[in-house]
Design a protein around this nucleic acid. Structure first.
Lengths: 148, 148
DNA sequence: TTAAGTGCAAAAGCTTTGCGGGTAG
DNA sequence: CTACCCGCAAAGCTTTTGCACTTAA
């Protein structure tokens, strides 16, 4: 995937520009998040990154993920479940949200991307981007439902 | 507000139709959620409902909120924060999500409502409805940003 | 050199579970 | 009467905090 390299370069550039130290741990966490692909929790990331940097602590993973969000390199996922999930894809894309099992699936569609952003100045809100959530039942939950 | 009564009636009808016992606690929790308005956590609901039913336990609030979600009377909010939030508004509406403070603000707009739902059959997903998240900075965070 | 990052252990939140007693239908 | 609900207490997760040590720039 081409986007991964771009994401890492963005991160390294931002670090230099704002004087944020570029550590082994940070690099490994970002790399792992990119490799994992789908919406892991902080703990998922920790489990995976331990394979690369065995001594890394859960605390560092939590802290680093928040740092990366702040830098705009990754985003927090809006998720109905209890644990926070992170998303390394910052390009415009959308989500299928299962109302039964709370799973979140990436979904891309040019028509959704073309949405015109409405005026929110009346509430003083400044829009940066948007996501569409299509809510319903995923394949598995639909089957379970059918059996009942 | 008209919708509140409708919501309670929907709930009572569903209870009778599916034989779900209609208890004092459930009624009070739904009523409280409707009165609170904006996206409370389970604990917020508990704090508020104690004023009406003093002996009610936190556990019951957690359980009942999940029951109401399952019945389709309320929905879980997709929220980037750590605690789950609930939304008594089941009508179509959208959200402004602040990327700095994680606040979620209700937002209605006919143009967003008119979105054409794309075909998701290729991934076996059945869409029930949708929400648009406009992400950016809320008024307060925008001011804080400006000062820096 | 020095400001910032890291690891550890412990605390603080949020949510779920098991169980005896209570209640709506 | 009977199945389901409720409250309590305790356990189980997830996330944050304080502090001493290490490291990138």
């Amino acid at each position: 995937m081409r986007a991964k390299r771009a994401c890492i370069e963005l991160f390294e550039r931002q670090c230099r520009d704002s004087g944020v130290p570029l550590t082994v741990q940070r690099r490994a966490i970002l790399q792992t998040l990119l490799d994992l692909g789908n919406h892991p929790t902080a703990d998922h990331v920790h489990q995976a990154v331990v394979a690369v940097v065995p001594a890394i602590s859960r605390t560092t993973v939590y802290r680093t993920l928040e740092t990366l969000v702040h830098m705009g390199v990754i985003t927090k996922l809006c998720h109905p479940g209890s644990a926070v999930r992170y998303d390394a894809r910052i390009e415009l894309h959308h989500h299928l949200v299962c109302l039964r099992c709370d799973q979140v699936i990436d979904f891309s569609d040019p028509n959704l991307d073309a949405l015109r952003i409405p005026d929110t100045s009346s509430v003083g809100f400044q829009v940066a981007d948007f996501r569409v959530q299509l809510r319903g039942l995923c394949r598995r939950c639909r089957r379970m439902e059918a059996k009942t």
